[in-house]
């Protein structure tokens, strides 16, 4: 027997009697009218900047300002104008290393914890949201759901090779539980909620 067979055989012998799978029904205790303010609030607690804008032009202006300011800025979202096609699935880490600011669009946001779902197809390269110094996420305000249970109802895992919930800037408290923002991933997260 190889190890796979040995392990599976040992489990078959040693596992307890079958126990049914529970139906997970969590009563939603969140008030939908306060969903968006709650989302914005929790993001700020998580150390992100969150801005609710009426018009996409505000975000476009921000993007242009960064470019004009000499910052190496990458846009991956068509809503904001020209996409930086030179960043793609095959870009190597050294090529991505100098990126200062990256604009990526989120798929959905969660009010209970401020997490935003990013899909591989929207980020162009899996490394981009992490290796950039500053991450900007653009999210449609109608895509905010109450909690994780709602979120997983709307995401089909496995359709894409990779997806990630991002809930703030990279951080660590590994030195004496003292919070430091900017560990290995992006040093800051700015979220634009678009009406």
């Amino acid at each position: 027997m190889n190890s796979r067979e040995k392990i599976l055989a040992a489990i078959a012998i040693n596992k307890p009697a079958f126990q049914p799978m529970p139906d997970v029904v969590v009563d939603i205790k969140y008030d939908y009218s306060v969903l968006v303010p709650q989302f914005l609030n929790i993001l700020q607690i998580n150390g992100a900047t969150a801005v609710w804008v009426e018009n996409v032009q505000t975000i476009k202006d921000d993007l242009q300002k960064n470019i004009a300011g000499g910052h190496y800025t990458i846009n991956t979202t068509e809503v904001l104008g020209i996409v930086n096609e030179e960043i793609n699935i095959n870009s190597n880490p050294a090529f991505l290393d100098p990126v200062e600011i990256a604009y990526i669009s989120g798929t959905l946001g969660i009010a209970e914890n401020g997490a935003i779902w990013l899909e591989e197809s929207k980020m162009r390269n899996r490394l981009l949201p992490f290796i950039c110094q500053h991450l900007v996420i653009v999210l449609d305000v109608t895509k905010i759901v109450a909690d994780m249970h709602e979120a997983y109802k709307r995401i089909t895992l496995g359709n894409e090779g990779y997806g990630v919930f991002v809930a703030g800037p990279s951080k660590t408290a590994d030195i004496e539980q003292s919070l430091v923002v900017g560990a290995h991933g992006a040093r800051s997260l700015k979220v634009y909620l678009l009406s």
Binding site: E112, E120, G161, V164, F165, P169, S170, K171
Partner: peptide, 23 residues
């Protein structure tokens, strides 16, 4: 929902990465 609240008191970790296929 359970993990990070229990671990550090954050509502979720900054990154929850879902790997399904190699790039």
């Amino acid at each position: 929902r359970l993990l990070t609240r229990s671990a550090t008191g954050q509502p979720i970790t900054v990154y929850s990465s879902h790997f399904h296929k190699p790039r």
